[in-house]
Design a protein around this nucleic acid. Structure first.
Length: 944
DNA sequence: ACCGCCGGGTGCC
DNA sequence: ACCGCCGGGTGCC
């Protein structure tokens, strides 16, 4: 045994005493829910939608330990006590390939972690076994080294590997928040957020819950800045509704705000970020803008146009800007650097110092005590604006802000980016809402002839373009004039389209330069908190631009159920967002006074013949499903069960509908072509059955649905990831059946409706439900022939069947379903919305047709022919006519067949509504709970 | 003394 | 760094 070895061992032993915690706390088991909630958990699969590095869902805290940051004197980055730091591997370090850099929130290097610790941590970081994070608890002012609290976060399955690896290097992790030992409470006792282990299990909210909770934040707006109204500039030709005046006032206050951004406070001469405890000397810039997240139909476009014209910052008649610019700063020092007076420089007037931004000088009306000459004014204005001296009194100058564009960089132009589909809408709206005598320069940056000269763009008042053009130009960077102009204002319309942070389109939008930034969207949170992060990165809100800080301060705490995290999220969202839904209230008063909406349920009794068929199919189905229950294979036959239920639902509508509903059993020994066809039929059934199907892997709604050979439907990217990561013999997450990439079947594009289920008019037979509908329609026509109605069904073939009696009774109707081309849809909508006397009075509408924007306000009656699984889908459909522009009372009739699957569906709907009313942080059902819920649903649907 | 102790030189990775 | 570590100087009490 050599002497060196002795020494080394001793050293390691001492280290383990220094850093580690002894005692059984190490073996303290995590709360039971991490292990026990899913005894046969088959759905616990790596989330495929993001790389291991980014995916912070389902992580747990492995533990914490104390380490040291060394080499401080070689780096410029500084930290404050209690400040978060980032650890970054530096494999190319010539002295140590295990090197780990320590950076502050700003990204400046503070030092390295000590090499012995780095030797242990490097492996963990490189293999993504854990995310290692640091906080400097105290000693931030030390000259050479400082302590560092390290926390290790990762997936449960990696915990033991990490602990073992650290142990091999002589380190031990302590669980957080145990009172004993060296004051582990330090973190919670101090200012700033607490990052202790969460009290609630790591469960996620469903996207739906998240959206509901999000809306609750805005249920009844009472804040001053969100309820104050403001008249638009004269140039706006359309009178604004009260809520639009509120939007205008709020947007302008956001653009001119001098407040600190959220989570910053001033202490002494420094600005502190209260989340990370990062401190800076310079005042952090606030977002001059935000998210206008109003519901569809509340007039976001008009609000944005009013904003552009009202807060124009120009010598247009609006606002008539006579600015009295007075200077209170005795020490005013101006350089020719655009926009900034820099401390320490001199100007022609001598040595005067100023720390104010020039822009602020214009905006503020403060008193001034010395003379300026023209040169001074020009220098002050920088290359962007010219300040004309209007009058000079002793000690006071009145300057007119002339805003002549001198440079091509910074302009008065607003850039509006929108999807192509709404580009023409913007042009229309500008025409409609801007007074005709106002000459606003609008340039549509689109098409092959668009000018590539930034100077052309910067001369405009408004530049309109699309996300695709923006992204395309950004792709060939040298060719993107959009990215060369420093815009006065950018407005991203339908801003949720930038919710994928990795998408080129998002990067292209983030890459734009502007003073003021706006996002208009009806759905600020689509699916997850990640959506919000993309928006934040567009706003360049510090410190969230860096994903790590967003994760550590908000996203992870929230997903782990930490109350502090939720409060921070709420504060952040409230700060930058204005959102009103149709049901929002302002100081207790409804934002939008819509005509009343009444929902009636019309019970339908089946005829004897219909009842007979129904009962026989029901008994047959119960037998089949009962067998699945006995075998315990209900969920592996889920698609088949759905098919049976669909058949029953179709029988409630019309016996003909169920005739061609193919019910195929297990994919047995059929040929591959037959099998494929069966699978295609099944996936169509699952998707068209209106079941609110979720992908069992991402637990979100299906994107790119594909069906496996074992007849389970997943998102294509999700299941591909599973197959990829479980190679060579991947198993179906739902039934452990064999999985092969080449056997996945996609849902073929919806084919045009095969001529009304092949039934000719003469062969047509009525059904009880259709008769009830026709009776109602004819009664309605007698009462008022002008009233227009929507007839809604989930089964497009049912709509086709209904066409026959409509024709026979002389109704003029239009039709809208998923199989129609965009052009035909627009035609149908325009035709229906027309008030011409010969225009159709009836629209046959498939439940899910059209986006949220679909506007069918010409109708004031809705006949919902069959209930949907998800009440939200029905609501959305009703909103197509019960929205801004609806002048009449809206009456909705839901047809429900007595003693049938439909009645049971209603009960389930009511339960779902109750669930949706849960609170923020309500735990999401685990996948096994979800399975149980589904089984329960199936049972109650067919009275088992 | 193949030690201990002293005090100067020195200092991330 | 008001430390630790290194290595040279040194050596009874």
């Amino acid at each position: 045994m050599s002497w060196m070895f002795m020494r080394g061992s001793l050293w390691k032993y001492l280290q383990s005493c220094q850093y580690g915690r002894t005692g059984n706390s190490l073996h303290h088991s995590p709360p039971a829910f991490f292990f026990n909630s899913e005894p046969e958990e088959v759905l616990c699969i790596d989330n495929p939608s993001a790389s291991a590095d980014e995916e912070m869902d389902s992580v747990v805290l492995f533990g914490v330990m104390r380490g040291n940051v060394v080499g401080l004197r070689y780096y410029t980055g500084v930290v404050s006590n209690n400040e978060m730091v980032a650890l970054q591997r530096e494999p190319a370090n010539p002295y140590d390939r295990n090197a780990v850099k320590v950076n502050n929130v700003n990204g400046d290097q503070v030092g390295h972690i000590k090499k012995e610790l780095a030797a242990a941590v490097a492996y963990i970081m490189d293999n993504h076994l854990a995310k290692v994070e640091g906080v400097v608890p105290y000693g931030a002012n030390s000259a050479f080294t400082m302590p560092l609290q390290l926390s290790f976060w990762g997936k449960e399955e990696n915990k033991q590997v990490v602990l073992d690896h650290l142990k091999r290097h002589g380190f031990k992790l302590a669980p957080m928040a145990t009172g004993a030992g060296f004051g582990s409470n330090w973190i919670t006792e101090r200012a700033g957020p607490s990052y202790s282990a969460p009290v609630l299990p790591a469960v996620q909210m469903t996207a739906e819950q998240l959206r509901t909770e999000f809306d609750k934040l805005f249920e009844d707006l009472k804040e001053d800045d969100k309820t104050r109204e403001m008249e638009p500039a004269e140039a706006v030709g359309t009178p604004l509704l009260p809520h639009q005046k509120q939007a205008l006032a709020w947007m302008i206050s956001r653009e001119n705000s001098k407040e600190l951004p959220p989570f910053w406070e001033q202490r002494n001469n420094l600005y502190y970020n209260t989340l990370t405890n990062f401190a800076v000397k310079e005042k952090p810039e606030n977002v001059l803008g935000g998210i206008l997240g109003d519901d569809m139909g509340l007039g976001k476009t008009l609000a944005a146009i009013a904003l552009i014209l009202t807060n124009f910052h120009d010598d247009k008649p609006f606002p008539v800007e006579m600015r009295k610019t007075n200077w209170s700063h005795q020490e005013c020092n101006v350089t020719d650097k655009p926009g900034k007076c820099e401390k320490g420089n001199t100007n022609k007037l001598g040595k005067r110092k100023c720390e104010k931004d020039i822009g602020e000088h214009h905006k503020e009306a403060t008193s001034c005590s010395f003379q300026h000459d023209t040169d001074f004014d020009l220098a002050l204005a920088g290359p962007t604006t010219k300040l004309k001296k209007k009058a000079t009194k002793k000690g006071t100058i009145v300057l007119q802000c002339n805003a002549k564009v001198v440079s091509e960089k910074k302009t008065r132009a607003t850039l509006i980016v929108c999807p192509l589909s709404v580009l023409s809408n913007w042009i229309d709206q500008f025409e409609q809402h801007v007074k005709p005598d106002v000459h606003l320069n609008i340039y549509v940056y689109y098409g092959p002839d668009r000018s590539k000269d930034p100077a052309v763009l910067s001369k405009q008042d408004v530049v309109l373009t699309t996300y695709s053009v923006l992204t395309h130009d950004y792709g060939c960077r040298s060719d993107s004039p959009l990215h060369k102009v420093k815009w006065l204002r950018i407005i991203l319309d339908e801003g949720h389209t930038i919710r994928n942070p990795n998408a080129q389109q998002t990067k292209a939008a983030v890459g734009l330069e502007a003073e003021r930034r706006w996002v208009l969207t009806g759905t600020p949170i689509q699916n997850s908190l990640k959506d919000l992060w993309s928006l934040l990165s567009f706003f360049k809100l510090k410190p969230f631009a860096d994903r790590e800080w967003w994760h550590r301060t908000i996203q992870r705490p929230v997903t782990m159920g930490d109350q502090g995290g939720l409060r921070r999220l709420q504060a952040l969202v409230k700060n930058i967002t204005l959102r009103r839904t149709k049901t929002s209230k302002v100081n207790g008063k409804a934002v939008l006074e819509l005509p009343e909406r009444k929902v009636f349920i019309q019970h339908v009794t089946l005829s004897e013949d219909e009842r007979q068929i129904y009962e026989s199919v029901k008994n047959e189905s119960r037998a089949v499903i009962g067998r699945y229950f006995n075998e315990g294979t209900v969920l592996t036959h889920y698609a088949d069960v759905l098919a049976l239920l669909v058949r029953l639902r179709q029988l409630c509508c019309h016996p003909h509908l169920a005739k061609n509903a193919s019910f195929s059993g297990l994919p047995g020994d059929s040929t591959s072509e037959e099998l494929r066809e069966k699978l295609v039929n099944k996936i169509k059934l699952v998707l068209s059955s209106g079941a609110d199907e979720e992908c069992a892997i991402c637990l979100d709604s299906l994107t790119f649905p594909v069906i496996t050979q074992c007849a389970h439907v997943f998102c294509k990217p999700c299941i591909c990831q599973v197959i990829h990561s479980e190679q060579p013999d991947a198993k179906c997450p739902l039934c452990r059946g064999e999985l092969h990439l080449e056997h996945l079947v996609e849902c073929p594009l919806e084919e045009p409706e095969t001529a009304a289920v092949g039934k000719k008019d003469k062969e047509w037979l009525p059904s009880s439900k259709v008769s009830t509908l026709m009776h109602a329609l004819i009664e309605l026509r007698k009462k008022n022939p002008m009233i227009k109605s929507l007839i809604v069904s989930q089964f497009t073939s049912f709509l086709s069947l209904i066409e026959t009696p409509l024709r026979k009774s002389g109704f003029v109707f239009a039709r809208l379903d998923g199989s129609m081309t965009q052009k035909k849809r627009i035609e149908a909508i325009q035709c229906f919305q027309s008030s011409a006397p010969e225009s159709p009075t009836i629209m046959l509408l498939s439940l899910k047709a059209g986006g949220v924007g679909l506007n069918l306000t010409a109708a004031s009656r809705v006949f919902l022919m069959d209930p949907a699984w998800n009440p939200a889908a029905e609501e959305q459909c009703f909103d197509r006519c019960h929205r801004l522009g609806q002048k009449q009372e809206v009456i909705i009739t839901k047809f429900i067949v007595k003693n049938s699957v439909e009645e049971n569906m209603l009960k389930i709907q009511n339960k779902k509504r109750e669930l949706a009313a849960g609170a923020f942080g309500t735990k999401k059902m685990s996948s096994s709970e979800m399975k149980q819920a589904k089984i329960k649903e199936i049972k109650s649907l067919i009275d088992m």
